[in-house]
Design a protein around this nucleic acid. Structure first.
Lengths: 200, 200
DNA sequence: AAATGGTTTAACCATTTAGTTAAACTAATA
DNA sequence: TATTAGTTTAACTAAATGGTTAAACCATTT
Protein backbone atom coordinates (compact mmCIF):
# COMPACT_ATOMS: atom_id res chain seq x y z
CA UNK A 1 0.00 0.00 0.00
CA UNK A 2 1.44 3.35 -1.02
CA UNK A 3 1.66 6.20 1.43
CA UNK A 4 -0.93 8.05 -0.58
CA UNK A 5 -3.49 5.25 -0.40
CA UNK A 6 -2.65 4.85 3.24
CA UNK A 7 -3.45 8.50 3.87
CA UNK A 8 -6.65 8.34 1.86
CA UNK A 9 -7.88 5.39 3.88
CA UNK A 10 -7.01 6.99 7.17
CA UNK A 11 -8.56 10.29 6.14
CA UNK A 12 -11.73 8.62 4.92
CA UNK A 13 -12.07 6.89 8.24
CA UNK A 14 -11.56 10.03 10.31
CA UNK A 15 -13.55 12.40 8.10
CA UNK A 16 -16.54 10.10 7.95
CA UNK A 17 -16.42 9.50 11.68
CA UNK A 18 -15.88 13.10 12.77
CA UNK A 19 -16.98 15.31 9.91
CA UNK A 20 -14.84 18.04 8.38
CA UNK A 21 -14.69 20.31 11.41
CA UNK A 22 -14.31 17.48 13.87
CA UNK A 23 -11.48 15.79 12.00
CA UNK A 24 -8.00 16.96 12.99
CA UNK A 25 -4.98 16.68 10.73
CA UNK A 26 -2.99 15.24 13.62
CA UNK A 27 -5.56 12.51 14.15
CA UNK A 28 -5.49 11.58 10.47
CA UNK A 29 -1.70 11.45 10.63
CA UNK A 30 -1.85 9.21 13.69
CA UNK A 31 -4.43 6.95 12.07
CA UNK A 32 -2.13 6.62 9.05
CA UNK A 33 0.90 6.14 11.30
CA UNK A 34 2.79 9.03 9.74
CA UNK A 35 3.94 12.56 10.39
CA UNK A 36 1.56 15.47 10.12
CA UNK A 37 3.88 17.27 7.73
CA UNK A 38 3.65 14.36 5.36
CA UNK A 39 -0.06 14.89 5.09
CA UNK A 40 0.54 18.38 3.83
CA UNK A 41 3.25 17.13 1.56
CA UNK A 42 0.78 14.84 -0.23
CA UNK A 43 -2.41 16.91 0.02
CA UNK A 44 -1.47 20.51 0.49
CA UNK A 45 -4.38 21.45 2.73
CA UNK A 46 -7.16 19.91 4.80
CA UNK A 47 -9.67 21.29 2.32
CA UNK A 48 -8.00 19.59 -0.64
CA UNK A 49 -7.71 16.32 1.21
CA UNK A 50 -11.37 16.51 2.11
CA UNK A 51 -12.50 17.23 -1.43
CA UNK A 52 -10.74 14.11 -2.58
CA UNK A 53 -12.49 11.88 -0.06
CA UNK A 54 -15.85 13.52 -0.43
CA UNK A 55 -16.16 13.50 -4.18
CA UNK A 56 -15.36 9.79 -4.21
CA UNK A 57 -17.96 8.99 -1.56
CA UNK A 58 -20.61 8.08 -4.10
CA UNK A 59 -18.92 6.72 -7.13
CA UNK A 60 -18.87 3.25 -5.63
CA UNK A 61 -22.60 2.95 -5.96
CA UNK A 62 -23.91 4.57 -9.11
CA UNK A 63 -22.19 2.39 -11.76
CA UNK A 64 -23.44 -0.93 -10.39
CA UNK A 65 -26.90 0.58 -10.14
CA UNK A 66 -27.02 2.01 -13.66
CA UNK A 67 -25.90 -1.26 -15.14
CA UNK A 68 -28.61 -3.28 -13.43
CA UNK A 69 -31.19 -0.71 -14.42
CA UNK A 70 -30.84 -1.66 -18.06
CA UNK A 71 -31.94 -5.24 -17.39
CA UNK A 72 -34.93 -4.31 -15.30
CA UNK A 73 -38.08 -2.96 -16.90
CA UNK A 74 -40.84 -3.06 -14.33
CA UNK A 75 -41.08 -1.07 -11.15
CA UNK A 76 -41.78 -3.93 -8.77
CA UNK A 77 -38.69 -5.79 -9.92
CA UNK A 78 -36.70 -2.63 -9.52
CA UNK A 79 -37.87 -2.20 -5.95
CA UNK A 80 -37.19 -5.82 -5.11
CA UNK A 81 -33.69 -5.41 -6.51
CA UNK A 82 -32.80 -1.95 -5.33
CA UNK A 83 -33.91 -2.05 -1.71
CA UNK A 84 -31.78 -5.00 -0.56
CA UNK A 85 -28.94 -3.77 -2.75
CA UNK A 86 -28.93 -0.36 -1.15
CA UNK A 87 -29.63 -1.59 2.37
CA UNK A 88 -26.62 -3.83 2.05
CA UNK A 89 -24.40 -1.03 0.80
CA UNK A 90 -25.47 1.29 3.58
CA UNK A 91 -25.06 -1.28 6.30
CA UNK A 92 -21.48 -1.73 5.16
CA UNK A 93 -20.94 2.04 5.31
CA UNK A 94 -23.21 3.09 8.15
CA UNK A 95 -21.51 6.44 8.80
CA UNK A 96 -21.52 7.53 5.18
CA UNK A 97 -25.05 8.95 4.94
CA UNK A 98 -24.78 11.01 8.12
CA UNK A 99 -21.42 12.28 6.90
CA UNK A 100 -22.66 13.28 3.47
CA UNK A 101 -25.87 14.81 4.78
CA UNK A 102 -24.08 16.77 7.47
CA UNK A 103 -21.41 18.17 5.18
CA UNK A 104 -24.02 19.00 2.60
CA UNK A 105 -26.12 20.83 5.14
CA UNK A 106 -23.05 22.78 6.29
CA UNK A 107 -22.03 23.64 2.77
CA UNK A 108 -24.71 22.90 0.15
CA UNK A 109 -22.41 24.04 -2.64
CA UNK A 110 -20.37 20.90 -2.22
CA UNK A 111 -23.15 19.11 -4.06
CA UNK A 112 -21.44 20.21 -7.24
CA UNK A 113 -18.39 18.13 -6.48
CA UNK A 114 -20.61 15.13 -5.98
CA UNK A 115 -20.43 12.58 -8.74
CA UNK A 116 -24.03 11.64 -8.09
CA UNK A 117 -24.83 14.84 -9.90
CA UNK A 118 -24.50 13.16 -13.26
CA UNK A 119 -25.88 10.11 -11.66
CA UNK A 120 -29.24 8.95 -10.58
CA UNK A 121 -31.20 7.71 -13.60
CA UNK A 122 -34.59 9.13 -12.73
CA UNK A 123 -35.94 9.10 -16.26
CA UNK A 124 -35.76 5.33 -16.60
CA UNK A 125 -37.69 5.05 -13.38
CA UNK A 126 -40.31 7.50 -14.56
CA UNK A 127 -40.97 5.37 -17.60
CA UNK A 128 -41.49 2.28 -15.49
CA UNK A 129 -43.78 4.09 -13.11
CA UNK A 130 -45.87 5.72 -15.83
CA UNK A 131 -46.43 2.40 -17.51
CA UNK A 132 -47.35 0.66 -14.28
CA UNK A 133 -49.81 3.43 -13.51
CA UNK A 134 -51.31 3.24 -16.99
CA UNK A 135 -51.74 -0.51 -16.59
CA UNK A 136 -53.33 0.15 -13.18
CA UNK A 137 -50.76 -2.01 -11.50
CA UNK A 138 -49.99 0.77 -9.04
CA UNK A 139 -51.65 3.92 -7.82
CA UNK A 140 -50.55 7.22 -9.36
CA UNK A 141 -47.42 8.51 -7.67
CA UNK A 142 -44.72 10.97 -8.64
CA UNK A 143 -41.30 9.53 -9.33
CA UNK A 144 -39.70 11.95 -6.88
CA UNK A 145 -41.99 10.86 -4.10
CA UNK A 146 -41.38 7.18 -4.63
CA UNK A 147 -37.62 7.58 -4.75
CA UNK A 148 -37.57 9.76 -1.66
CA UNK A 149 -39.88 7.38 0.18
CA UNK A 150 -37.58 4.46 -0.55
CA UNK A 151 -34.42 6.32 0.40
CA UNK A 152 -35.99 7.71 3.54
CA UNK A 153 -37.18 4.34 4.77
CA UNK A 154 -33.72 2.88 4.25
CA UNK A 155 -31.48 5.72 5.36
CA UNK A 156 -33.39 7.13 8.29
CA UNK A 157 -33.03 4.18 10.68
CA UNK A 158 -29.29 4.20 9.98
CA UNK A 159 -28.58 7.85 10.63
CA UNK A 160 -31.01 7.98 13.53
CA UNK A 161 -29.54 4.88 15.14
CA UNK A 162 -28.52 6.43 18.46
CA UNK A 163 -31.93 8.02 18.81
CA UNK A 164 -33.83 4.88 17.82
CA UNK A 165 -31.69 2.62 19.93
CA UNK A 166 -32.05 4.97 22.88
CA UNK A 167 -35.65 6.08 22.68
CA UNK A 168 -37.41 3.22 20.92
CA UNK A 169 -35.33 0.23 21.97
CA UNK A 170 -34.29 1.46 25.43
CA UNK A 171 -30.56 1.25 24.78
CA UNK A 172 -30.87 -2.37 23.77
CA UNK A 173 -28.44 -2.81 20.90
CA UNK A 174 -29.60 -6.36 20.23
CA UNK A 175 -33.16 -5.18 19.66
CA UNK A 176 -31.95 -2.59 17.20
CA UNK A 177 -29.82 -5.10 15.32
CA UNK A 178 -32.69 -7.53 15.22
CA UNK A 179 -34.90 -4.81 13.85
CA UNK A 180 -32.36 -3.88 11.19
CA UNK A 181 -31.87 -7.47 10.10
CA UNK A 182 -35.49 -7.53 8.98
CA UNK A 183 -35.42 -4.00 7.65
CA UNK A 184 -34.86 -4.79 3.98
CA UNK A 185 -37.90 -7.06 3.78
CA UNK A 186 -39.99 -4.63 5.76
CA UNK A 187 -39.11 -1.76 3.43
CA UNK A 188 -39.91 -3.78 0.32
CA UNK A 189 -43.25 -4.79 1.77
CA UNK A 190 -44.06 -1.27 2.93
CA UNK A 191 -43.19 0.31 -0.39
CA UNK A 192 -44.98 -2.26 -2.53
CA UNK A 193 -48.06 -2.01 -0.36
CA UNK A 194 -47.96 1.75 -0.42
CA UNK A 195 -48.18 1.89 -4.21
CA UNK A 196 -50.84 -0.77 -4.69
CA UNK A 197 -53.83 0.53 -6.60
CA UNK A 198 -56.61 1.83 -4.40
CA UNK A 199 -59.36 -0.78 -4.00
CA UNK A 200 -62.14 1.65 -3.16
CA UNK B 1 -35.70 39.99 27.20
CA UNK B 2 -33.11 39.15 29.82
CA UNK B 3 -29.47 38.70 28.89
CA UNK B 4 -29.77 35.02 29.69
CA UNK B 5 -32.69 34.45 27.31
CA UNK B 6 -30.89 36.55 24.76
CA UNK B 7 -27.86 34.27 24.96
CA UNK B 8 -29.97 31.12 24.82
CA UNK B 9 -31.69 32.30 21.65
CA UNK B 10 -28.44 33.28 20.00
CA UNK B 11 -26.75 30.05 21.02
CA UNK B 12 -29.66 27.95 19.79
CA UNK B 13 -29.45 29.67 16.45
CA UNK B 14 -25.71 29.18 16.06
CA UNK B 15 -25.49 25.67 17.51
CA UNK B 16 -28.30 24.37 15.34
CA UNK B 17 -26.85 26.01 12.26
CA UNK B 18 -23.23 25.00 12.81
CA UNK B 19 -23.23 22.06 15.20
CA UNK B 20 -21.18 21.92 18.39
CA UNK B 21 -17.75 21.89 16.76
CA UNK B 22 -18.68 24.44 14.13
CA UNK B 23 -20.17 26.90 16.58
CA UNK B 24 -17.70 29.44 18.01
CA UNK B 25 -18.23 31.24 21.29
CA UNK B 26 -17.32 34.51 19.59
CA UNK B 27 -19.99 33.99 16.97
CA UNK B 28 -22.60 33.29 19.62
CA UNK B 29 -21.53 36.43 21.44
CA UNK B 30 -21.81 38.47 18.25
CA UNK B 31 -25.22 37.00 17.48
CA UNK B 32 -26.35 37.99 20.96
CA UNK B 33 -24.72 41.40 20.64
CA UNK B 34 -22.63 40.93 23.78
CA UNK B 35 -19.11 40.28 24.93
CA UNK B 36 -17.62 36.82 24.80
CA UNK B 37 -16.67 36.96 28.47
CA UNK B 38 -20.31 37.46 29.33
CA UNK B 39 -21.11 34.13 27.76
CA UNK B 40 -18.77 32.44 30.17
CA UNK B 41 -20.14 34.48 33.00
CA UNK B 42 -23.64 33.07 32.41
CA UNK B 43 -22.79 29.57 31.18
CA UNK B 44 -19.35 28.67 32.42
CA UNK B 45 -18.31 26.63 29.40
CA UNK B 46 -19.27 25.91 25.83
CA UNK B 47 -20.20 22.38 26.90
CA UNK B 48 -22.59 23.60 29.60
CA UNK B 49 -24.19 26.07 27.23
CA UNK B 50 -24.64 23.36 24.66
CA UNK B 51 -26.21 20.93 27.10
CA UNK B 52 -28.81 23.51 27.94
CA UNK B 53 -29.79 24.04 24.31
CA UNK B 54 -29.64 20.40 23.39
CA UNK B 55 -31.69 19.01 26.22
CA UNK B 56 -34.40 21.53 25.47
CA UNK B 57 -34.48 20.65 21.79
CA UNK B 58 -37.37 18.26 22.19
CA UNK B 59 -39.41 19.36 25.10
CA UNK B 60 -41.45 21.65 22.90
CA UNK B 61 -42.98 18.70 21.14
CA UNK B 62 -43.67 15.86 23.52
CA UNK B 63 -46.24 17.54 25.83
CA UNK B 64 -48.58 18.59 23.04
CA UNK B 65 -48.29 15.12 21.59
CA UNK B 66 -48.96 13.20 24.79
CA UNK B 67 -52.02 15.30 25.51
CA UNK B 68 -53.57 14.66 22.11
CA UNK B 69 -52.81 10.97 22.41
CA UNK B 70 -55.32 10.61 25.20
CA UNK B 71 -58.18 11.71 22.99
CA UNK B 72 -57.27 9.48 20.09
CA UNK B 73 -57.97 5.78 20.18
CA UNK B 74 -57.57 4.40 16.68
CA UNK B 75 -54.41 4.21 14.65
CA UNK B 76 -55.70 5.84 11.49
CA UNK B 77 -56.84 8.89 13.40
CA UNK B 78 -53.48 9.04 15.07
CA UNK B 79 -51.68 9.00 11.75
CA UNK B 80 -53.97 11.63 10.30
CA UNK B 81 -53.30 13.80 13.31
CA UNK B 82 -49.63 13.15 13.91
CA UNK B 83 -48.20 13.46 10.40
CA UNK B 84 -49.34 17.00 9.65
CA UNK B 85 -48.62 17.98 13.24
CA UNK B 86 -45.04 16.77 13.02
CA UNK B 87 -44.45 17.96 9.46
CA UNK B 88 -45.53 21.39 10.57
CA UNK B 89 -43.21 21.38 13.57
CA UNK B 90 -40.27 20.23 11.51
CA UNK B 91 -40.84 22.72 8.74
CA UNK B 92 -40.71 25.45 11.35
CA UNK B 93 -37.42 24.04 12.67
CA UNK B 94 -35.82 22.58 9.56
CA UNK B 95 -32.29 22.48 10.96
CA UNK B 96 -33.25 20.76 14.19
CA UNK B 97 -33.29 17.13 13.02
CA UNK B 98 -29.93 17.32 11.28
CA UNK B 99 -28.51 19.01 14.35
CA UNK B 100 -29.83 16.42 16.78
CA UNK B 101 -28.92 13.47 14.61
CA UNK B 102 -25.43 14.77 13.96
CA UNK B 103 -24.65 15.51 17.59
CA UNK B 104 -26.09 12.17 18.60
CA UNK B 105 -23.95 10.36 16.08
CA UNK B 106 -20.88 12.22 17.36
CA UNK B 107 -21.68 11.48 20.96
CA UNK B 108 -24.42 8.87 21.44
CA UNK B 109 -24.27 9.31 25.20
CA UNK B 110 -25.96 12.65 24.87
CA UNK B 111 -29.18 10.73 24.36
CA UNK B 112 -29.40 10.58 28.13
CA UNK B 113 -29.76 14.32 28.37
CA UNK B 114 -32.60 14.21 25.92
CA UNK B 115 -36.01 14.74 27.42
CA UNK B 116 -37.53 12.49 24.79
CA UNK B 117 -36.06 9.70 26.84
CA UNK B 118 -39.00 9.73 29.21
CA UNK B 119 -41.05 10.63 26.27
CA UNK B 120 -42.47 8.90 23.32
CA UNK B 121 -45.61 7.00 24.37
CA UNK B 122 -45.05 3.82 22.40
CA UNK B 123 -47.27 1.65 24.54
CA UNK B 124 -50.43 3.58 23.75
CA UNK B 125 -49.61 3.17 20.07
CA UNK B 126 -49.03 -0.55 20.45
CA UNK B 127 -52.50 -0.95 21.90
CA UNK B 128 -54.07 0.85 18.97
CA UNK B 129 -52.10 -1.19 16.46
CA UNK B 130 -52.82 -4.52 18.10
CA UNK B 131 -56.52 -3.82 18.11
CA UNK B 132 -56.55 -2.68 14.50
CA UNK B 133 -54.68 -5.82 13.50
CA UNK B 134 -57.07 -8.03 15.48
CA UNK B 135 -60.01 -6.36 13.76
CA UNK B 136 -58.24 -6.88 10.43
CA UNK B 137 -58.33 -3.20 9.70
CA UNK B 138 -54.59 -3.20 9.00
CA UNK B 139 -51.93 -5.75 8.16
CA UNK B 140 -49.72 -7.01 10.99
CA UNK B 141 -46.86 -4.60 11.62
CA UNK B 142 -44.56 -3.98 14.54
CA UNK B 143 -45.03 -0.74 16.39
CA UNK B 144 -41.35 0.13 16.00
CA UNK B 145 -41.50 -0.30 12.27
CA UNK B 146 -44.55 1.87 11.84
CA UNK B 147 -43.14 4.66 13.98
CA UNK B 148 -39.79 4.58 12.21
CA UNK B 149 -41.47 4.51 8.80
CA UNK B 150 -43.50 7.58 9.66
CA UNK B 151 -40.55 9.49 11.09
CA UNK B 152 -38.30 8.52 8.20
CA UNK B 153 -40.75 9.64 5.56
CA UNK B 154 -41.15 12.99 7.28
CA UNK B 155 -37.61 13.71 8.43
CA UNK B 156 -35.56 12.39 5.53
CA UNK B 157 -36.61 14.92 2.87
CA UNK B 158 -35.83 17.69 5.34
CA UNK B 159 -32.32 16.65 6.34
CA UNK B 160 -31.48 15.54 2.81
CA UNK B 161 -32.71 18.79 1.33
CA UNK B 162 -29.46 19.88 -0.36
CA UNK B 163 -29.03 16.45 -1.88
CA UNK B 164 -32.63 16.18 -3.02
CA UNK B 165 -32.73 19.71 -4.34
CA UNK B 166 -29.46 19.15 -6.16
CA UNK B 167 -29.74 15.63 -7.47
CA UNK B 168 -33.48 15.10 -7.85
CA UNK B 169 -34.72 18.61 -8.57
CA UNK B 170 -31.66 19.92 -10.44
CA UNK B 171 -31.02 22.83 -8.08
CA UNK B 172 -34.56 24.08 -8.57
CA UNK B 173 -35.64 25.35 -5.16
CA UNK B 174 -39.18 26.01 -6.32
CA UNK B 175 -39.61 22.36 -7.32
CA UNK B 176 -38.42 21.26 -3.92
CA UNK B 177 -40.75 23.63 -2.12
CA UNK B 178 -43.63 22.53 -4.26
CA UNK B 179 -42.81 18.94 -3.43
CA UNK B 180 -42.64 19.67 0.28
CA UNK B 181 -45.93 21.54 0.27
CA UNK B 182 -47.65 18.32 -0.69
CA UNK B 183 -45.47 16.16 1.53
CA UNK B 184 -47.80 15.85 4.51
CA UNK B 185 -50.67 14.49 2.41
CA UNK B 186 -48.33 12.20 0.53
CA UNK B 187 -46.94 10.72 3.73
CA UNK B 188 -50.39 10.12 5.17
CA UNK B 189 -51.48 8.39 1.99
CA UNK B 190 -48.31 6.33 1.76
CA UNK B 191 -48.46 5.20 5.36
CA UNK B 192 -52.17 4.39 5.37
CA UNK B 193 -51.79 2.46 2.13
CA UNK B 194 -48.78 0.60 3.42
CA UNK B 195 -50.67 -0.81 6.38
CA UNK B 196 -53.86 -1.75 4.59
CA UNK B 197 -54.71 -5.41 5.04
CA UNK B 198 -53.42 -7.62 2.24
CA UNK B 199 -56.17 -8.35 -0.26
CA UNK B 200 -54.68 -11.57 -1.63
C1' DA C 1 30.94 6.75 -4.33
C1' DA C 2 28.96 11.11 -5.60
C1' DA C 3 25.02 13.28 -7.10
C1' DT C 4 20.17 13.57 -7.63
C1' DG C 5 15.21 13.49 -6.78
C1' DG C 6 11.66 12.06 -4.19
C1' DT C 7 10.15 11.04 0.73
C1' DT C 8 9.91 11.70 5.71
C1' DT C 9 10.75 13.99 9.97
C1' DA C 10 11.39 17.34 13.96
C1' DA C 11 10.95 21.80 15.03
C1' DC C 12 8.78 25.83 14.29
C1' DC C 13 5.15 29.67 13.14
C1' DA C 14 0.78 32.11 12.99
C1' DT C 15 -3.85 32.00 13.96
C1' DT C 16 -7.82 30.63 16.19
C1' DT C 17 -10.30 29.64 20.14
C1' DA C 18 -12.03 28.42 24.90
C1' DG C 19 -11.53 30.27 28.98
C1' DT C 20 -9.71 33.89 32.80
C1' DT C 21 -8.99 38.17 35.14
C1' DA C 22 -9.29 42.55 36.85
C1' DA C 23 -11.35 46.61 36.39
C1' DA C 24 -15.41 49.54 35.08
C1' DC C 25 -20.19 50.23 35.24
C1' DT C 26 -25.03 50.11 37.14
C1' DA C 27 -28.70 49.93 40.14
C1' DA C 28 -30.46 49.07 44.39
C1' DT C 29 -29.90 49.86 49.45
C1' DA C 30 -28.18 51.34 53.90
C1' DT D 1 -23.85 59.58 49.55
C1' DA D 2 -21.28 55.39 50.34
C1' DT D 3 -21.62 50.54 50.01
C1' DT D 4 -22.63 46.50 47.90
C1' DA D 5 -24.11 42.90 44.77
C1' DG D 6 -24.62 41.88 40.33
C1' DT D 7 -23.43 42.84 35.33
C1' DT D 8 -20.46 43.94 31.44
C1' DT D 9 -16.19 44.84 29.19
C1' DA D 10 -11.25 44.98 27.39
C1' DA D 11 -7.23 42.71 27.73
C1' DC D 12 -5.05 38.67 28.53
C1' DT D 13 -3.51 33.43 28.75
C1' DA D 14 -2.91 28.78 27.34
C1' DA D 15 -3.78 25.27 24.38
C1' DA D 16 -4.96 23.51 19.94
C1' DT D 17 -4.50 23.46 15.21
C1' DG D 18 -3.45 24.18 10.18
C1' DG D 19 0.37 24.95 7.83
C1' DT D 20 5.71 25.78 6.79
C1' DT D 21 10.65 24.96 6.69
C1' DA D 22 14.98 23.04 6.67
C1' DA D 23 17.33 19.21 7.38
C1' DA D 24 17.71 14.13 7.27
C1' DC D 25 16.84 9.91 4.91
C1' DC D 26 16.74 6.66 1.10
C1' DA D 27 16.82 4.63 -3.32
C1' DT D 28 18.25 5.10 -7.97
C1' DT D 29 21.32 6.78 -11.48
C1' DT D 30 25.80 8.41 -13.14
Amino acid sequence: MTTEENIINAAKEVFVRKGFQGAKMQEIANEAGINKALLHYYFRSKEKLFEQIFSGAFQQLIPALSKKLDEITDIESFIRFFVPFYVDFIQKNPHLPQFVLHELSQNPDRIRSLAANQGFPLSKLSVMIDRAVAEKKIRPIETHSLVINILGLIIFPIIARPMIEGVIFNQNTKSYQNFMAKRSDEVVETILNSIKPQSN
